[in-house]
Amino acid sequence: MTIFEKVADWLDVAGLTAGYKIQLVQWIEQKADTDAMKYIVVQPDGGTPRYRCLGAYDYVLVNIISAKNDPEPAIATAQAIMDYVTNNADDDVLNFIANAGGFPTPIPTEEGRTVIRLRFEIIS
């Protein structure tokens, strides 16, 4: 299992993805989804070299995508994820996870959605 799949599962088990459709690598809006559908897309974002038994950093992006014209729940979810990571940084599944970059500027889309891109570093 890849590190970004582990992060997606970790967030799901923590109950932070309720009400969102989780996708890996890229956001694909399904035709059957309504404008009210919200997404969390988890993507790899590089890392540092691995040397035998030494640890390395993996970077993972967690993109929270709002329903159309309703950014507030996505903002609250992003903050809840950041708070959870802050209070649960040491973990048996991920080893160590930390926010890398704080709370970013939300990005509006042409379709009226809001995207919040959280970046995390995981020490493995």
Rank of each mutant, 00 (worst) to 15 (best):
V62P: 09
R119C: 12
A14C: 12
K31V: 12
P49F: 06
T109Y: 12
G55F: 13
D92Q: 12
I75G: 00
Q79V: 04
N99F: 04
Q23T: 03
Q23G: 03
A18E: 12
D33Q: 11
Y59Q: 11
A14G: 10
F120I: 06
A56R: 15
P104K: 13
R117Q: 14
I40Y: 01
A8W: 07
I64K: 04
I123S: 12
E72V: 02
I116N: 02
A100R: 14
A67N: 04
W27K: 07
I75N: 02
A18T: 15
A36R: 08
A18L: 11
G19Y: 10
S124L: 14
D9I: 01
V42D: 01
P104L: 07
N87P: 01
G46D: 03
N69G: 02
C53N: 15
G47R: 10
V62Y: 05
Y84D: 00
L94I: 07
A78T: 07
E5D: 04
P106L: 07
L24K: 04
I116V: 05
E5G: 03
G101E: 07
P44C: 00
A18I: 12
F4R: 11
G46Q: 09
M1Y: 01
W27R: 07
K31A: 13
A76F: 04
L11P: 08
I107K: 15
T109V: 10
F103V: 07
D92E: 14
P104Y: 11
P49W: 08
Y39V: 00
A14M: 05
E5Q: 13
I22F: 05
E121P: 03
P108E: 15
A78I: 01
V41K: 01
T109S: 15
Y57S: 12
N95R: 14
V85M: 07
R50Y: 07
V7W: 05
Y57I: 11
G112S: 11
A56M: 13
T17W: 07
A76Q: 04
I123R: 15
V85C: 07
R117F: 00
L118A: 05
A67S: 14
T34G: 14
A74N: 09
T105I: 15
R52K: 14
A36T: 09
Y84P: 01
E29N: 06
K21N: 05
V60I: 15
G46S: 06
T109P: 13
R50C: 03
L16Q: 08
T86A: 14
V60G: 08
L94A: 09
G47F: 08
A8Q: 12
D58L: 02
I28Q: 13
G102H: 08
V25S: 09
D90G: 08
L61N: 14
D91V: 10
V13L: 10
E29G: 08
L24H: 04
I64V: 15
G19I: 09
D35C: 03
P106C: 07
A78L: 02
K6V: 00
M82V: 02
E121D: 10
N88E: 09
F96W: 14
